[in-house]
């Protein structure tokens, strides 16, 4: 376990990003405290995904500073790989490795990046797989699983690296409705265990249940930050009000 002593899991100060002329992130300031659960919502194209993808640098920011677990990102590849080991990410389209079995998906990073011996890596993988009730499917390939199962495996794969911060990029958006629940349940139990989570999602039920803070973004800026009860009852920001009124909940 690589528990970091840094009190802030992630910190973004005055972060900007452009895609050519398009200003995708406008002066983002965000602090994620250890153990905090933050839900990020907003209309599509508002920069939510871009923001969390900047934290593990799947997107490079153009100005401002980002620190993860107390370490300021320098753009150095070696430093970045070390930081990424402690930051799990779950994608909208799962991105499991299709040529590897479920078990291999879970052990490949711990074994090849952290040099965990195979036996130990497999034990840990089976531990997480049984927690998400997929242990008996460990030797199947991703294509043999349902979407909900695949996404749960993707969560387990991230957990096998024993991250201290988990990023979720619309983890339920690509799922059939009946499978959303099982994935959210896994995420709720993760939250209960005290994992630091930054979740881009439109699942407002999930936000109500576990979020410490809800962040509303639009046009690349953070428009409002509030505890969920406050945010849903009386959003201060006009655009947030419009956004919420358009969600069926």
């Amino acid at each position: 376990m690589t528990s970091s002593p840094a009190p802030l899991a992630a910190q973004m100060s005055d972060v900007n990003k452009w895609y050519n002329d398009y200003h995708a992130l406008r002066s983002i300031n965000l602090e994620v405290a250890r153990g905090e659960r933050i839900v990020v919502c907003g209309p599509s194209g508002s920069g939510k995904s871009t923001m969390i993808r900047c934290i593990n640098q799947l997107e490079k920011h153009d100005s401002g500073t980002i620190a993860v677990n107390g370490v300021t990102l320098t753009g150095d590849l070696k430093q970045l790989n070390t930081i990424r080991q402690d930051v799990g990410m779950v994608f909208q389209h799962f991105n499991l490795f299709p040529h590897l079995s479920v078990l291999e998906n879970c052990v490949i990073a711990p074994m090849s990046v952290r040099n965990v011996p195979r036996k130990q890596a497999e034990e840990m993988a089976m531990h997480y797989l049984s927690r998400i009730h997929i242990a008996e499917q460990a030797h199947k390939f991703p294509s043999q699983l349902s979407g909900g199962q695949q996404q749960r495996v993707a969560i387990a794969r991230s957990l096998c690296m024993q991250p201290n911060l988990m990023l979720f990029d619309e983890p339920t958006s690509a799922l059939d409705p009946e499978m959303v629940h099982e994935v959210l349940e896994t995420m709720v139990s993760l939250a209960r265990d005290g994992m630091t989570m930054l979740v881009v999602t439109h699942e407002m039920g999930f936000a109500r249940k576990v979020a410490d803070r809800v962040i509303f973004m639009d046009h690349g800026e953070i428009c409002e930050t509030a505890p969920p009860e406050e945010f849903f009852k009386s959003p201060q920001n006009e655009r947030a009000r419009v956004f919420l009124s358009q969600l069926i909940h």
């Binding site: 930081i83 990424r84 402690d86 799990g88 994608f91 490795f97």
Partner: peptide, 11 residues
């Protein structure tokens, strides 16, 4: 997404 998944695991 495969490149991104591998990168996000620190590979």
């Amino acid at each position: 997404g495969q490149f991104e998944a591998a990168a996000s695991l620190g590979m």
